[in-house]
Design a binder for these strands. Structure first.
Length: 557
RNA sequence: UGGGAUGUAGCCAAGUCGGUAAGGCACAGGGUUUUGAUCCCUGCAUGCGUAGGUUCGAGUCCUGCCAUCCCAGCCA
């Protein structure tokens, strides 16, 4: 695939390559396995992956598992699966763990101590906070900063050997307590934490901090460009400090880009977790979730996510992308790819009074006009059919050109029908519509050149199957779900109509054989996927996204 | 308030040496259409956060100001 899109990261790499033509480009995606990946991560994954591709380099997945109290093996599994899904490649040979480098991190810590760049500090967490100062006030040196190298060595080895209580000591860098950048005020490098690690078990009771471990991992793996989101900008000097003090003359270049926000959605692991815990949604892979697993179940394709990410570009400004831009990507792909089928979501019975009682017809209809090679399906027709309830009005609205008394419409691929009667129940609800058909209009065209303005979909009652269809919509009612009013929570912004379950949808017989993950365009309704949990012969369909609907807009406005 | 970053249309986003504002989404109008879909045309920033300055010429250079975001975890 030709990729003409470029961004400031490519410019940086191009310049580096000018200086060092033999530089091997290597990137990585380093998630912490403490939750499921979401659409925001897809951007980070693809930025890194596409750069590696573009420059014929290497892309690795690395679990940033330096804090066993927050991490879980369940998450490492889901993360690997999601990343592989997004990039469409196996990562079996490109999977690393921060914990692979614990020994090396420890050795390097010894070196820092030996070289006088780190010390063991006895300050408690509270005390440390006080010593650190604030945004406007500088901090103060720890009273333990002047311990001798020997003393620091002995104490740090003691920390590692489990001689001290959790939280009683830390290893800290000696940088500058008066730095305006708080990150550089003698940051903690190691903490004592007795927790079983998913990889290293109980081998360690001290664990390195992100700021210390991350540059080491990058350097050891051979990463050339360490790309991360903007909030790590302040940490860059520390990243470079660590590698400098460790004696790396040349080392990976950290650069930052803006993370992705999309209107009406959440891109925060913490907030997403809350939706799961509060049972607002049915798990991490609920189709309404913007987790990658949720979007996969919803029916979004990895390729549509890729094209979305390419379309929005990469920059450093804080932005919120319109959800419409995202929906465009999947519609655009499925418009071309998805086979077309007729499905009546909210059925209304139509009797064609002049059609012979027992007659049946079977039309041969193309599955997808964009792909004639895919062949046809058999579409049965008979005297009684279902149409969409919204396709009939007793008293038509202005410019309504569907079915109403006296009006003629086309049934897709079948006949022209004209309404001459209808029945209502005691509540005034229409129960049945009576029409006549024009035998000469078979196939949907009249030989006399007569035009109809409306064309509607339908399903033969006699041949219909009944299915469950889940209509998904955006999960939040607010453009920014995190913007909450006084006394409210994010949960108050949840869209109560985000899932509408239709248990009485009528589908063409062809659909009975649908397989999990098959995608279709339900004509005039939208794009749907056969749910991954569907039982054979009993497909359940999820709405991926509705079709654009200028009539709905017009009739509302 | 100290430090760091960002501000180009309703939303993203290009804009290398200063030379007269790409593209996509959305929206509006028109055409085609057996999906009010798709597709095809057309329109959509005398202006680039703002006020000055330099220059023949400034989104691009200089100065001041404003707004938004990030940082005070032994989280990442």
């Amino acid at each position: 695939m030709e990729n003409i899109t470029t961004n400031f990261l490519h410019d940086i790499i191009d310049k580096d390559l000018e200086k060092k033509p033999n530089l091997a480009i290597q990137t990585r995606f380093p998630p912490e396995p403490n939750g499921y990946l979401h659409i925001g991560h897809a951007k980070a994954i693809l930025i890194n992956y596409l750069i590696a591709k573009k420059y014929n380099g290497t892309f690795n997945l690395r679990m940033d598992d330096t804090n066993p109290t927050k991490e879980d093996i369940e998450y490492v599994k889901s993360i690997k699966k999601d990343v592989e899904w997004i990039i469409g490649e196996s990562l079996d040979d490109h999977l690393y763990y921060a914990s692979d480098y614990f020994d090396k991190c420890y050795e390097y810590a010894l070196k820092l101590i030996r070289d006088g760049h780190a010390f063991v500090c006895d300050l408690s967490a509270d005390q440390l906070r006080n010593y650190r100062g604030t945004l406007t006030e500088v901090g103060k040196d720890s009273p333990y900063k002047n311990r001798t190298v020997d003393e620091n060595m002995k104490l740090f080895v003691g920390m590692m050997n489990g001689e001290f209580l959790d939280g009683s000591k830390t290893l800290r860098a000696k940088i500058n307590m008066e730095s305006p950048n708080i990150v550089l005020r003698d940051p903690v490098l190691y903490r004592i934490m007795r927790a079983t690690h998913h990889n290293t078990g109980d081998k360690w009771c001290i664990y390195p901090m992100y700021d210390y471990a991350h540059p080491i991992q990058d350097a050891l793996e051979g990463v050339s460009h360490s790309l991360c989101s903007l909030e790590f900008k302040n940490n860059r000097p520390l990243y470079e400090w660590v590698l400098n003090k460790l004696g790396y003359g040349e080392f990976p270049k950290q650069r930052e880009f803006a993370r992705l926000n999309i209107s009406y959605t959440l891109t925060s692991k913490r907030k997403l977790l809350k939706l799961v815990e509060k049972k607002i949604v049915d798990g991490w892979d609920d189709p309404r979730m913007t987790t990658l697993s949720g979007m996969r179940r919803r029916g979004y394709t990895a390729s549509s996510i890729l094209s979305f990410i390419e379309e929005i570009g990469v920059a450093k400004s804080h932005s919120v992308v319109d959800i419409a831009q995202f929906e465009h990507s999947i519609r655009n792909e499925l418009n071309f790819e998805a086979n077309r089928i007729m499905t009546v979501l909210d059925p209304l019975k139509v009797v064609i009074t002049n059609y012979p009682d027992d007659k049946e017809e079977f039309f041969d209809v193309l599955l997808n006009p964009n792909h004639p090679d895919r062949g046809t399906r058999i579409l049965p027709f008979s005297k009684e059919i279902y149409i969409e309830r919204s396709d009939f009005m007793i008293e038509p609205a202005r410019k309504y050109f569907r079915l109403f008394p006296g009006n003629e419409v086309r049934l897709i691929k079948a006949y022209f029908i004209k309404c001459h009667d209808y029945k209502v129940d005691s509540n005034g609800k229409v129960t049945e519509v009576h029409c006549t058909y024009d035998d000469a209009s078979k196939g949907g065209q009249s030989p006399d050149g007569r035009k109809v303005k409306g064309t509607i979909h339908w399903v033969s009652i006699k041949h219909a199957h009944t299915c469950q269809v889940n209509l998904y919509d955006r999960l939040f009612t607010k453009e920014n779900p995190s913007a909450i009013d006084e006394g409210e929570t994010i949960l108050d912004n949840v869209n109560s109509d985000s899932l509408i379950i239709l248990s009485n949808a009528k589908v063409e017989p062809y659909l009975k054989e649908a397989l999990p993950n098959d995608r279709f365009q339900f004509m005039r309704n939208g794009y749907f996927i056969c749910d991954q949990e569907s039982k054979p012969g009993k497909p359940v369909f999820n709405r991926i996204v509705a079709l654009r609907d200028s009539w709905a807009k017009k009739s509302k406005g």
